[in-house]
Design a protein around this nucleic acid. Structure first.
Length: 351
RNA sequence: CUGACAUGUAUCUGU
């Protein structure tokens, strides 16, 4: 059973949850191995990440039908699924059944609720959940604080965000790399890179190691303040010190070079990326497509679109908006429609 | 007695 759970969980994480379910139905039944709650949690979480709420709910009901008793993790997975897709009322209902069945919430439950309520605009309830978790001494880590810091930062409230960091420390918890990075990103966007660097100093002082995301955040902040060369210096330093850069590092700088119209730098960065075998993603192509569109090279944009599909990267809503907005300016109405149909046919849902 | 498998938070691109 452990072996199967490992395989099933791997498939779920790889976005192959339907296949994982077939493994359950066919292989496990064949050998008469009984799935347990972990098996179901993996599958529910897998469907959750694929936004298949119906399937997640179906598996939850199957647990009940089999006479098994869902534990906290199973409830958490389904709660998270509902809240991520905006089904707040379902989540509330599930939460009350969880209470009725005397399944006690843990710190995961609370952080899922805090994040989910904030995501769906129920700010007051989110804060109440956070408070309740603290009162029940279930606040075992800083995740819920991190979520609140992110909320404040995304709503322009840098002062409140910093206050939350102070609250973490007075609660005798230890801010982690995500706490600092979240706050640094808020600083970059609200009070400038200089301020973010103060936070960075604090992080180092409290012995939290910056990671790739931390540096990407700084690089992005510098790029947005037109200090692209300083940003590039950081990237070079990362590589020199053996910290591996990722696709977001490249995308951030690539976008900055494009905005600055440093064509040569942009091209050489793309080559650099290939050489280090960092795979491009949707954003990489979106940056390039946006760049060529801005100069009215719509044919070139089409070629990039083809190249991205050939590499197995699917256009998304941003690709759509970029291409449609540009085609309206430089193409005839039939061509705009042709592009629209083409993208919709590849699964893009226009917003 | 011990060990292996499940759930939550941060950074890039368009309008």
């Amino acid at each position: 059973c452990v072996t199967y759970n490992t395989v099933i969980n791997g498939l779920c994480k790889a976005g192959e949850t339907s296949l994982a379910e077939r493994v359950l139905r066919e292989d496990m039944c064949k050998w008469d191995i009984k799935p347990n709650l972990r098996t179901f949690s993996s599958l529910i979480d897998g469907f959750s990440n694929e936004r298949k709420v119906d399937d997640a709910l179906r598996l939850f009901n199957e647990i009940l039908d089999k006479g098994m008793v869902p534990n906290t993790t199973v409830y958490n997975s389904l709660l998270n699924c509902f809240l991520k897709q905006g089904f707040v009322e379902y989540a509330r209902y599930l939460l009350s059944s969880m209470m009725d069945s005397r399944t006690s919430p843990d710190h995961f439950t609370y952080t899922i609720l805090v994040e989910g309520f904030l995501r769906n605009g129920f700010v007051k309830e989110a804060f109440e959940c956070h408070q309740k978790m603290r009162e029940e001494s279930l606040c075992k880590d800083v995740v819920s604080y991190n979520i609140l810091i992110n909320y404040f930062c995304k709503h322009g409230k840098i002062k409140e965000a910093k206050q939350m960091l102070a609250n973490i420390i007075t609660s005798h918890l230890v801010p982690d790399v995500i706490t600092y990075t979240t706050l640094m990103d808020g600083c970059c966007k609200l009070s400038g890179v200089d301020d973010a660097l103060h936070v960075f100093d604090g992080m180092v002082k409290y012995e939290q190691r910056p990671n790739v995301v931390t540096y990407n955040t700084i690089i992005n902040g510098l790029c947005k303040e037109d200090s692209v060369d300083a940003a590039r210096f950081i990237m070079d330093e990362m590589m020199r010190t053996g910290l591996h850069v990722d696709v977001l590092t490249y995308n951030t700088l690539l976008n900055a070079y494009c905005n600055r119209e440093s064509f040569d730098e942009a091209v050489s960065l793309c080559l650099h990326m290939r050489k280090l075998k960092v795979m491009e993603n949707e954003s990489t192509y979106n940056v390039l497509i946006n760049f060529v569109c801005k100069f009215g090279f719509f044919q070139l944009a089409k070629e990039l679109l083809k190249a991205m599909i050939d590499r197995g990267i699917f256009p998304d809503q941003i690709t759509y908006t970029t291409l449609i907005a540009s085609s309206i300016k430089s193409c005839s109405p039939p061509e705009v429609l042709e592009m629209h149909d083409f993208l919709v046919l590849r699964g893009v849902i226009p917003d």
